[in-house]
């Protein structure tokens, strides 16, 4: 119960980072934090259902739910792809305008460089 409140707090911290920080790299940090918190939430909820790891050797019973773990594998790999693409776009913006500050970039794009 308290773990879920802490995970909600982590999600809100990531969201606050995206909305209120002006540096582009800080916004990408916020994306990563949100991704991390949702993955931890799924694995935590799935592990409430049992007590041993889902490797069915001889005599293992009462395993945890393996379906959320299989889904989160895909989610983690896609998360790193999202970060890499976002960083490539941020790099291009830096090379074109000279700054990472989102308000400066907006002003420069609006005034035609």
């Amino acid at each position: 119960m308290i773990e879920r409140i802490l995970l909600l707090g982590m999600f809100l911290i990531g969201f606050w980072g995206i909305v209120s920080r002006k540096n582009l790299i800080k916004k990408i940090f916020g994306l990563n934090i949100i991704n991390n918190s949702v993955v931890i939430l799924f694995v935590l909820e799935g592990s409430r259902a049992g007590s041993s790891a889902p490797i069915m050797e001889q005599g293992i019973s009462n395993i945890v739910d393996p379906v959320p773990q299989a889904l989160m594998l895909t989610a983690i790999v896609i998360g790193v792809c999202i970060s890499a693409l976002a960083l490539a776009l941020a790099f291009r913006l830096y090379k074109a305008t000279g700054t990472y500050n989102i308000q400066e970039i907006k002003r420069k794009v609006h005034n035609g460089f």
Binding site: P54, I55, V64
Partner: peptide, 14 residues
């Protein structure tokens, strides 16, 4: 610690 070794390997490497 939550009995998910596959996710742990992937998260550590990534």
């Amino acid at each position: 610690l939550q009995q998910a070794p596959d996710v742990a390997i992937t998260e550590a490497a990534v």
